[in-house]
């Protein structure tokens, strides 16, 4: 695995974030988000080392934050990260069945990357869109009021 590096804008972003808070530790979450965005949706150990040097924060401290929050992926994900909410409202509206259906339709196991590298499907806890259950988030977008067929259609339309 080649060494990870942020883009020039990414570096600028990190530097700005560092100045924004009282303590540099507060900037870890936004910076990890940035890294995840620029590193195909996941945060690799190499990128933690890189960030540690850039931010002058020990690797262990960044890793503490990284391993605490579920929004950060510590394993590679597909180009489209499908997060199906399985919290109470969605679950009552068939979100778990929906997840199984999606996995079956696209021949991918939960949490794993599909063979063509397009897709990763995971279950997540509440995404705060209970009124439109069931719903899923693909990368940064919400798709709501899903049915098994509409969800498959949405994913198929993605490139």
């Amino acid at each position: 695995m080649a060494d990870f590096q942020l883009s020039a804008e990414g570096v600028e972003f990190v530097k700005a974030e560092l100045k924004r808070y009282e303590t540099p530790l507060s900037a870890v979450i936004p910076c990890l988000y940035r890294v995840q965005k620029e590193n195909q949706g996941w945060v690799s150990p190499e990128s933690v080392s890189y960030l540690s040097q850039l931010m002058d924060i020990p690797e262990a401290h960044i890793n503490e934050v990284l391993s605490f929050y579920t929004m950060f992926n510590r394993e590679p994900v597909g180009r489209h990260h499908v997060q199906v909410c399985c919290n109470i409202s969605c679950a009552m509206n068939g979100a778990r069945e929906l997840t199984h259906h999606l996995c079956k339709s696209f021949d991918v196991k939960e949490g794993e990357v599909s063979k063509d590298g397009k897709l990763t499907i995971t279950r997540v806890e509440c995404l705060g869109s209970c009124g439109t259950a069931p719903m899923m988030q693909i990368n940064d977008r919400y798709y709501e009021n899903l049915s098994p067929d509409s969800a498959v259609k949405i994913i198929k339309e993605l490139e």
């Binding site: 150990p45 020990p58 690797e59 401290h61 503490e64």
Partner: peptide, 25 residues
């Protein structure tokens, strides 16, 4: 390791009942 030796190797990783002490990588 943070305050005395200032080597910062150790951290508490993961969360909830999966939390554990460890070193990066």
């Amino acid at each position: 390791t943070d305050e005395v030796s200032k080597t910062h190797e150790l951290g508490i990783f993961n969360r909830g009942d999966r939390s554990e002490i460890g070193t990066f990588k």
